[in-house]
Amino acid sequence: MTTSREKKQEIIDAFHFRHATKSFDSSKKIADSDFDFILETGRLSPSSVGYEPWKFLVVQSPELRAKLKEVSSGARGQLDTASHFVVILAHKNARYDSDYVYNIHKNVKQIPEEMIQDILPRYKAFQDDSQNLFESERSLFDWASKQTYIALANMMTSAAQIGIDSCPIEGYLPNAVNNILADEGIVDTDTWNVSVMAAFGYRETEPAREKTRQPLNDIVKWV
């Protein structure tokens, strides 16, 4: 039986193993069961007030990857070589009183109707007074986008724990990516927009140098 100490070491080893892989071994493919596991850790990730304002678009089409490559300078090596490439979308209008949020309350959380109506004022106060999310449509999207990064991190960490490499990607033109997805009829960009991308696969070469990070004492302050 794995001890707590052994489990902690396994997790730390995975963090040391993980690096931003720029080019993958295109001859190696992730098993379906392994990628289902990675996606499941994204699905089970926490989100603010449980709104889950994300979708995971797994792009395996070579034609679509080629189109994305033209507007994604930070993903050119990964789009050509990754076993799996994911565009993570964020909801543009996860307001407390939106149809999307009502569906989460009613059909996902299965909250009774009278309770939904009772809790809405509290969620309104949270989004408006605490987070200032009603200042603009961009504020709501940025808030949703922050949630997607929680799922992204969990997916990359879970991948590393089973020996699969990954790379988070922000080097793309958002409007151009959204237009491509809309033109292809894949995404309703009135509702969803690209938040971040991620590539998964098996490294082609080992990292050129060891992982570097600031010392713990430089980034942590106990008060």
Results as ranks from 00 to 15, higher is better:
residue 78 Q to M: 13
residue 31 A to L: 14
residue 30 I to G: 03
residue 68 L to Q: 00
residue 30 I to S: 02
residue 58 V to D: 12
residue 73 S to C: 07
residue 21 T to H: 05
residue 81 T to S: 11
residue 52 E to M: 06
residue 58 V to W: 12
residue 71 V to R: 01
residue 72 S to G: 06
residue 63 E to K: 10
residue 29 K to V: 11
residue 25 D to A: 12
residue 31 A to D: 13
residue 71 V to C: 06
residue 48 S to L: 09
residue 18 R to G: 08
residue 63 E to R: 07
residue 30 I to V: 12
residue 66 A to N: 00
residue 80 D to M: 05
residue 40 E to D: 15
residue 79 L to P: 06
residue 57 L to V: 06
residue 45 S to R: 10
residue 29 K to T: 15
residue 70 E to P: 05
residue 31 A to W: 13
residue 44 L to T: 09
residue 77 G to H: 06
residue 19 H to Y: 13
residue 82 A to Q: 00
residue 43 R to Y: 12
residue 44 L to A: 09
residue 57 L to A: 04
residue 49 V to Y: 10
residue 76 R to F: 05
residue 75 A to L: 04
residue 77 G to L: 04
residue 32 D to Q: 12
residue 76 R to Y: 07
residue 62 P to R: 15
residue 77 G to R: 05
residue 69 K to I: 03
residue 37 F to A: 14
residue 39 L to T: 07
residue 61 S to N: 12
residue 18 R to N: 10
residue 50 G to S: 04
residue 35 F to R: 00
residue 48 S to I: 12
residue 46 P to L: 04
residue 30 I to R: 02
residue 45 S to E: 08
residue 77 G to Q: 08
residue 53 P to I: 04
residue 20 A to N: 11
residue 29 K to A: 15
residue 80 D to T: 11
residue 82 A to V: 00
residue 73 S to P: 05
residue 48 S to Y: 10
residue 23 S to L: 15
residue 35 F to A: 00
residue 67 K to H: 05
residue 78 Q to D: 13
residue 28 K to M: 02
residue 59 V to A: 00
residue 51 Y to E: 04
residue 24 F to Y: 14
residue 16 H to N: 02
residue 79 L to H: 07
residue 76 R to L: 11
residue 59 V to Q: 01
residue 36 D to K: 09
residue 63 E to S: 07
residue 64 L to V: 05
residue 66 A to Y: 00
residue 56 F to M: 09
residue 26 S to I: 14
residue 49 V to W: 05
residue 53 P to E: 02
residue 60 Q to L: 14
residue 38 I to L: 13
residue 38 I to Y: 06
residue 38 I to R: 05
residue 44 L to V: 07
residue 62 P to K: 14
residue 28 K to C: 03
residue 55 K to S: 08
residue 76 R to W: 06
residue 60 Q to W: 14
residue 28 K to S: 03
residue 56 F to K: 06
residue 56 F to H: 07
residue 55 K to D: 05
residue 68 L to N: 00
residue 61 S to P: 10
residue 50 G to Q: 03
residue 72 S to T: 04
residue 24 F to V: 10
residue 26 S to R: 15
residue 47 S to P: 10
residue 56 F to T: 09
residue 43 R to H: 14
residue 30 I to P: 02
residue 65 R to A: 13
residue 26 S to M: 15
residue 38 I to D: 02
residue 60 Q to K: 14
residue 51 Y to S: 04
residue 34 D to V: 04
residue 16 H to E: 01
